[in-house]
Design a protein around this nucleic acid. Structure first.
Lengths: 144, 144
DNA sequence: GTCTATAACTGACTATTAGTAAGTACGCAC
DNA sequence: GTGCGTACTTACTAATAGTCAGTTATAGAC
């Protein structure tokens, strides 16, 4: 990680909190090393969609307890259809956050596990979920 | 906050990380004091939808820099339409995360600011956004 | 005078995605 | 034999995201 130049060091501050500032020109290394949620076509937008989708949030949180089968996930994440669960898991697998392990048996037996990177994401997501659960009762919309 | 009984204290642990465990019976006070993202009809699901929507995430992060006008937000959050921006801000205002201040002038002059509660949510959201930006380049989908 | 730009929405409509229902093959229980 | 469970996929419908046009008043350019 010592590959950054001096100007790269400047940009590596709290980038997200500096959304309103003019971004300094990015070197090629910077462009390759980091996404930018505020850029319309940045791939990070797609990943964010997957992670922050309703089902994505709940699946990541549920998997924090350890490996789960498709049907176990289906039951824990109340309200999700098989269709949406399958799609969500495909996305998260494609993002490298979830590992899928299929056994060569019938009926199908498939297990899903968080990758190390998935565990990081899930921890952040769980923190947000926790915050929402703790604060929802204070919200005006809740009192209506 | 000393109102919780002993059994309530037990439940107040890392609730989100315990998604797989059987939840002990909740007292009335507990039910009123905390939402549950894993319950289909809990209001916290709606709040989560607002906060974790693509535009919700970006608006919250953008407002961390301070008060912004509608048009300023429109420009910072690249790709958002006025329609979606207006709707997102309505949601976040209804959730008590954003304050709207309209001046009695023409053309309209409206400013949006994070509430203290909104600042908490935005900090968590920004942390997640930061993580996504930092890690998107490591993802298999990014390499395809 | 007309035209354009600005601001911050809202309503009508279209496009896209979420969600519903049915289907698949096999083993087991009744 | 029927029904259930498993983990998806396909075809279709419902809901939401997104597009477009409209609103009011003012300032500035022509």
């Amino acid at each position: 990680m010592g590959r950054f130049s001096a100007s790269a060091k400047k940009v590596s501050g709290p980038r997200t909190g500096a959304a309103g500032r003019k971004m300094p020109a990015k070197s090629v290394a910077e462009r390759i090393q980091r996404g930018d949620l505020f850029a319309v076509s940045c791939p990070s937008r797609e990943v964010m969609k997957h992670i922050t989708s309703s089902w994505g949030v709940l699946v990541l949180i549920a998997l924090r307890d350890g490996t789960l089968r498709f049907s176990e996930l289906r039951r824990k994440v109340a309200g999700v259809s098989e269709r949406m669960l399958a799609q969500t898991l495909q996305w998260l697998e494609g993002d490298g956050l979830v590992e899928r392990h299929a056994y060569p048996v019938v009926p199908p037996h498939v297990e899903y596990t968080l990758t190390p990177m998935g565990e990081e994401a899930a921890a952040l997501v769980a923190g947000l979920g926790d915050w929402i659960e703790q604060n929802v009762t204070k919200m005006p919309s809740f009192r209506d």
